[in-house]
Simulated assay, not measured.
Amino acid sequence: MKRTLQSLMLGSCLALTQGCAATSNSFTFTADLPPDFAYVASVYYVPAKGQTCTVPRADNRVPQFNREWRTEYKPDAQIEIRRTRKGCELVIDYVELEINATYGKDWGDLGREYARVSVREELPEAFKGTFNAAGEGEFSGQCQWLFRTSGGLRRLVKILDCKKTDASGELLKTRPFAAYTLDELPGKTVKMKIKLADEERPYMKDTWVKVSGGWKRCMGESFEDQDAFCFGNYKDFSTFRMPGGRICTIYPGCTEDKELTP
């Protein structure tokens, strides 16, 4: 009778979402991202502490969330903390977060960066993530678009650069990152909060010149010059082709309403 009562209590606890975090074997990962952003989460597992077993990669496949992010994106992912493969007890090691952002309609009009959530048995307090009374933990970052031209048509392309921000919003040198211990994760929610910088900037120095309305692209030695550094020439500029085909002389404040020739 005692064993039956304990089983009933355990079953009831598993069915609840609050007050039974110790019985949960998962946590929720979610993200607050700018428009046209999405993440892909890849979860990696290693043998638990004290285990001497190993599991081949074929039997320890990496679960992915939002793999088809262009068509089936969901901000919430329920991530398993412990699992067993081939009789070997595994625990989560880290979650690799691929941050994807689109800036045009073509398949390649895409910027990509990475973030990570690491999980350890123990962590120094300075590196340990925290949770509020509702069981929610959060880490933040800021992404910025860096623009350049590419190819013989000088097509404008963008590179995504993301950095971690501290509690005061100051940019740090590392990518967005958080770390938690195994025993604090069950039943909790971890959120990655990313904001987009208000302004974009050139990817390479001395290739664009700041003017009213945006930036002008230095001509370089000729239109065919792929690097086209200014080298002190701030009078000769070139056109460039926007995603979608529009030809402009200033980015982002393009005022041309018809195609130009280089």
Rank of each mutant, 00 (worst) to 15 (best):
W215V: 12
K210T: 15
A228E: 06
D225F: 09
D198A: 14
S222L: 07
E184S: 08
L196D: 03
K210N: 15
T174E: 12
G220R: 05
T207K: 03
G187Y: 03
F223T: 15
K193G: 07
G187N: 11
V211P: 03
T189D: 06
E199D: 10
L182Q: 05
K188L: 01
L196G: 03
R217H: 15
F229W: 05
P202Q: 11
E200V: 12
D183Q: 11
C218N: 01
C218E: 00
K205Y: 14
F177W: 06
M204N: 14
M204C: 09
V211W: 00
L172I: 00
R217T: 08
T174M: 12
L172D: 07
D166N: 01
R201L: 08
W215D: 11
F229V: 13
V209Y: 04
K173S: 12
R201A: 09
Y180Q: 04
R175Q: 08
G220M: 09
V190H: 02
K173H: 10
E221L: 09
F177G: 03
S222A: 09
R201Q: 05
G213K: 03
M204E: 15
P186R: 10
Y203I: 11
S222M: 11
T207E: 15
W208Y: 10
F229R: 13
A197W: 00
E170C: 11
G214E: 01
P202D: 13
L185V: 05
L172Y: 00
V190C: 02
D166G: 01
K210M: 15
T207F: 06
E170T: 12
V190L: 04
M192H: 03
E170R: 04
L196A: 04
R201F: 08
E200N: 06
T181M: 02
E184R: 12
L185W: 06
K195D: 10
K195Q: 05
R201C: 04
V190Q: 00
I194A: 02
L171W: 00
G213N: 13
L182C: 05
F223Q: 13
D206V: 11
C218L: 01
A197Y: 00
F177C: 08
V209C: 09
T207Y: 09
P202T: 14
Y203G: 09
D166E: 02
M219Y: 14
W215M: 13
D166R: 00
K205A: 15
L196N: 03
K210P: 15
E199A: 13
K188S: 03
L185A: 07
T189Y: 04
K195C: 06
D227T: 14
C218M: 00
K216W: 02
F223S: 11
G169I: 00
S168C: 10
A179H: 05
M192R: 04
R217I: 08
S168Y: 09
I194Q: 00
T174Y: 07
G187M: 05
A178N: 06
V190A: 02
P202F: 10
F229G: 12
D206A: 14
R217C: 11
T174K: 08
A197D: 00
V190M: 03
P176K: 04
K195W: 06
T189H: 03
R201T: 12
S222W: 14
T174H: 10
D183G: 07
M204F: 12
E221G: 14
D206Q: 14
